[in-house]
Amino acid sequence: MKFLPKNIIDFFLNTWGLFNFTKRFFIQFFRGKPEVEETIKQCFQIGYKSLPLVSITGFIIGLTLALQIIPTLDKFGAVSLIPQMLSIAVVREIGPVIIGLICAGKMGSGIGAELGSMKVTEQIAAMEVSAINPFKYLVVTRITAAMITVPILVIYADTLSLIGGYLSMSVNADMSIRLFFSEVFSTLTFEDFLPAVVKTIFFGFGIGLVGSYKGYNCSRGTESVGIAANSAVVAASLLVILLDLIAVQISTIIF
């Protein structure tokens, strides 16, 4: 294997490891009693803590997006099209991807660091020797929680984003709230909404998976906790972008 550069080998080893980790997730997910209580706790932990960041980002995206579009469309006298453009852009693409990336940063590093430090301080080993399955208790619950919370956060941020968009419209283009939202709701269809929600479930899965994988396989020594958290963010962000690409391809075929 000498002739291959080390990072290429690492890449394939990581991919293989991630594949096995995924397999293990599905096996453990369906095996035995589900850890409902712990999953709810994790939803709160990873979801609720991302709320402030997600709220601010969501709101500002809509606000600035509308601000940017208004002068351009004003030239064509097409300002009334902005609610439609905004809702499509935000719901289909910008909301899921930006919030997905934010969650990749916040949740990916959080999960990676938490599991990493549990690994380093032998807490995972301690669970294992007391005949409790740490994979089910720690990993399955976190991945599931990310799959539940990311879509909710995205929908929530989309809403705030549209409110932000309305605010900038009402100030700069004197549009009423009624008109704005009736335009929004008459534009958005099930075909805009469903693929967006489905893909954010996958984003959540990817973020939880990568964060747990990096943390769970953290090597010995405290410095590796930082490495685990950091590489979790990088890998999770990349995964969100890749999943988005795939999701868009698939949804254009189906719809």
Binding site: T121, Q123, A125, A126, E128, A131
Partner: peptide, 19 residues
Amino acid sequence: LQEVRKKIGFLFQSGALYD
């Protein structure tokens, strides 16, 4: 392995308490 582990107690050098 889990069955055998139920009979074993392991005190870790670091204590390994759940933080």
